[in-house]
Amino acid sequence: MTSIGMSVASANLLRNGEIGTKGRDPLPRLLGQLTARAGTPVTVERAASRPWASALFQGRRHVITLSLAGPDAAARRAAFVAGIEEAEWSLTGHFVADLSIDDSYPMPGGEWIELSALTIEDW
């Protein structure tokens, strides 16, 4: 049987805390890079982030909807979608493990892009 002595002073206990910016949600930085890739004018219609974990990793799952406006929106959507799964993203303390386009379609005056991403804390 294993036991622990509770008379240890709390100052001697190790704290399991976040170091630097690793625990921060990378969604704002990811949104900045996605909107730069989409060009202007672009609007973030929806951006949600929630914790995600597996047996070995922890991170966040993101769902994002962008609307592109303007006469060149269809061409910008095609350029945005092309090769996005292999694109490199710069997220301090995290990396993009998966990014996929869930849907994209025309709308009056522009284009919609719905995507999801999985970011993992970089150890």
Score class of each variant (00 low, 15 high):
residue 105 Y to K: 13
residue 115 L to E: 07
residue 89 W to T: 04
residue 115 L to G: 04
residue 16 N to G: 02
residue 69 A to N: 02
residue 16 N to P: 00
residue 42 V to L: 09
residue 65 T to P: 05
residue 88 E to L: 07
residue 25 D to R: 02
residue 81 V to L: 07
residue 44 V to E: 09
residue 117 A to D: 02
residue 58 Q to A: 10
residue 72 D to G: 03
residue 41 P to T: 09
residue 105 Y to S: 15
residue 27 L to Q: 09
residue 5 G to V: 00
residue 104 S to M: 11
residue 43 T to F: 11
residue 113 I to L: 11
residue 100 S to F: 06
residue 43 T to I: 13
residue 121 E to D: 00
residue 57 F to T: 12
residue 60 R to W: 04
residue 100 S to Y: 03
residue 25 D to T: 02
residue 74 A to S: 15
residue 120 I to V: 15
residue 1 M to T: 11
residue 96 V to N: 05
residue 42 V to A: 15
residue 33 Q to T: 06
residue 20 G to C: 01
residue 35 T to D: 05
residue 105 Y to R: 15
residue 10 S to H: 00
residue 6 M to K: 00
residue 12 N to M: 03
residue 25 D to S: 13
residue 85 E to F: 00
residue 12 N to R: 07
residue 49 S to I: 11
residue 21 T to A: 08
residue 102 D to M: 14
residue 58 Q to D: 11
residue 110 G to N: 14
residue 101 I to E: 13
residue 61 R to W: 08
residue 49 S to F: 13
residue 17 G to M: 01
residue 28 P to M: 01
residue 47 A to M: 07
residue 80 F to H: 04
residue 57 F to G: 00
residue 62 H to V: 04
residue 59 G to D: 05
residue 3 S to V: 07
residue 99 L to I: 15
residue 16 N to Q: 03
residue 36 A to S: 14
residue 31 L to M: 03
residue 31 L to C: 10
residue 51 P to D: 15
residue 60 R to C: 01
residue 24 R to H: 04
residue 60 R to V: 14
residue 40 T to Y: 08
residue 117 A to Q: 10
residue 90 S to V: 12
residue 93 G to W: 03
residue 78 A to T: 14
residue 23 G to T: 03
residue 51 P to M: 01
residue 102 D to L: 14
residue 32 G to D: 12
residue 44 V to T: 14
residue 32 G to Q: 08
residue 22 K to Q: 07
residue 66 L to K: 09
residue 8 V to L: 10
residue 92 T to A: 07
residue 77 R to Y: 09
residue 21 T to L: 08
residue 84 I to S: 04
residue 63 V to R: 12
residue 15 R to Y: 01
residue 66 L to S: 11
residue 106 P to R: 13
residue 86 E to C: 01
residue 21 T to I: 08
residue 64 I to K: 04
residue 34 L to V: 12
residue 22 K to H: 04
residue 111 E to M: 15
